[in-house]
């Protein structure tokens, strides 16, 4: 029987010399979900994940894993961690490396050997088992890195920006593997600044900016709380024909013109039907009119704003 929540973060704060990286952040990752930790670069995602892993210690607050006492290292046999800063021992043989990394997580030697061989076969690296990491292409090294994260069949996968730095083929492959593991019951916590990925994968998310939580919860709830007033409009002969209607501030609060279509946010009391009537009256040939859920990206930008990317974010890696 899996625990109800796999990761519980209670009001953690981490300060560095110049600034506060994470401030009173709380979140709960339910068992068996794919959970997204979202935010712009420098929001404090990596710092949060490192505190969850007990690689850095929070100044205040606490982290509970699997509803038991113990730190990330105590549970290293149950957690697969893929850090943002990735690397392997370049001079080791692929199999030796995988066995070693598994052993540091408490897997026995013989078991690690068997699992590693199976995974390497499965991802098409069967012929490279005894080659040195250095002899592998970048893409193959990424596969090896991924294998090292999941080899010990963890209950919880923590992936920091898993889709950046991987090539498209490996990104797809890894996404498929992650979904498969999640379907098999593994809880996945991953961070990203790319909202489209989170939207496709996550059932729950937590959005943070400037080290603080902006919103968290189930993705469906967040969308319905921020939805209902979003309309997508497309016109056959160009949006200029309806420009006047789209800029009517009594109905439209905000419009995003993407060229082929526009995503509108209506003012609170506006009736979408009224908007449709106005559009028809212009005589333009309307090809699409859709009352839509907002994209996560839209919610994110609305909540966080473009100013969320703070200048000191550039120094994140030096401190995080």
């Amino acid at each position: 029987m899996p625990a109800a929540s796999v990761v519980t973060v209670s009001s953690i704060t981490k300060r560095y010399a110049g600034h506060t990286a994470v401030r009173e952040l709380s979140l709960t990752v339910p068992a068996g979900t794919i959970y997204g930790l979202l935010g712009p670069n420098g929001a404090g995602k990596t710092t949060t994940i490192r505190m969850i892993m007990d690689i850095t210690v929070p100044d205040e607050g606490s982290v509970t894993l699997f509803d038991e006492s113990g730190t990330g290292r105590d549970f290293s046999s149950r957690i697969g961690y893929l850090p943002e800063e990735r690397g392997l021992y370049k001079k080791m043989k692929v199999l030796d490396l995988l066995v070693f990394l598994a052993e540091t997580k408490g897997v026995t030697r013989s078991h690690a050997k068997r699992e590693a061989t199976q995974w390497l076969e499965r991802l098409g690296l069967g012929d490279w088992t005894l080659k040195k990491v250095n002899d592998l292409s970048k893409g193959m090294q990424q596969k090896v890195q991924f294998i090292s994260t999941v080899l010990h069949r963890p209950d919880l996968l923590i992936l920091d920006e898993p889709f950046s730095g991987f090539d498209p083929v490996n990104t797809q492959l890894m996404k498929n593997e992650v979904v498969e593991l999640a379907n098999a019951g593994t809880t996945v916590l991953f961070s990203t600044h790319i909202m489209e990925q989170a939207e496709k994968l996550c059932s729950s998310v937590c959005i943070i900016a400037r080290g603080e939580k902006v919103v968290d919860g189930q993705l469906a709830d967040i969308k319905s709380n921020h939805g209902g007033r979003h309309v997508i409009v497309a016109v056959a002969d160009g949006l200029q024909r309806v420009e006047r209607v789209l800029s009517d501030r009594t109905l439209v609060q905000n419009s995003d013109n993407y060229g082929q279509y526009a995503e509108l946010e209506l003012v609170e009391s506006a009736d979408p039907q009224q908007l449709l009537q106005n559009l028809v009256q212009t005589g333009a040939q309307i090809t699409r009119f859709e009352i839509a859920e907002p994209t996560l990206n839209k919610i994110f930008i609305d909540l966080v704003g473009a100013g969320a990317i703070r200048p000191e974010a550039l120094g994140e890696n030096a401190h995080a």
Binding site: M53, I55, G72, R73, S76, I79, Y81, P83, E85, R86, G87, L88, Y89, K90, L101, T104, K105, G106, S148
Partner: peptide
Amino acid sequence: VEEKSSRVIEVLASSLR
């Protein structure tokens, strides 16, 4: 320094003290 420059250190630090 090799573990640092190859960035393998963070994986190690997650399971080893």
